[in-house]
Nucleic acid binder design. Structure first.
Length: 152
DNA sequence: GCCAACGTTGGC
DNA sequence: GCCAACGTTGGC
């Protein structure tokens, strides 16, 4: 059974438009440095779908749909001392962080904005809208997924 | 730039 | 194990 997720990225760092330009429109989703988010990455199955969310930008919101095309594997950026996400506590023997590969499925013509989601009470229970929520990877229910697609 | 909320660190 | 201090996230 397909499961649904939401994955955040700051577009100045990596955007939907960036993914669109990649070879085969596939990219490792790396740099996650939060244990709860990491555990969600590890739970992802091939073919799971996710919303690509743009954060910390003029119009925060969902920019499109991506698919998990490679299950969790060690995140090499944690071992690279020159990488901003370098973590000295992660080692090749005991990698602490993981990434998955994602592939572009659909880029929305217009972002489904956070403001739009907030306008409808059906979304108020979403983890994304909970006060103080900062998780960069989170599950979405099938109902939430379908309801958001109606806004595209 | 501000600030609330959260996670992590480290002293005790 | 507690908790204050600090760094980060992310909307506004």
């Amino acid at each position: 059974m397909t499961r649904y997720w939401l994955m955040k990225s700051e577009p100045t760092c990596f955007s939907m438009a960036d993914l669109e330009k990649r070879s085969q429109q596939i990219e490792p989703w790396d740099g996650v440095r939060n244990y709860q988010a990491r555990n969600f990455l590890q739970a992802m199955q091939l073919g799971d779908l996710a919303f690509f969310y743009h954060s910390s930008c003029p119009i925060p919101g969902i920019a499109g749909i991506i698919s998990i095309v490679k299950r969790a594997y060690p995140d090499k950026t944690a071992l690279d001392i020159s990488n901003p996400h370098y973590d000295p506590k992660s080692t090749p023997d005991k990698p602490r962080w993981v990434c998955v590969d994602v592939q572009l499925i659909k880029k929305f013509k217009q972002t489904v904005s956070l403001a739009q989601l907030k306008r409808q009470s059906i979304f108020s229970s979403m983890r994304l809208l909970q006060k103080g929520n900062r998780l960069s990877v989170m599950p979405i229910t099938a109902e939430e997924w379908q309801a958001i697609l109606m806004l595209v």
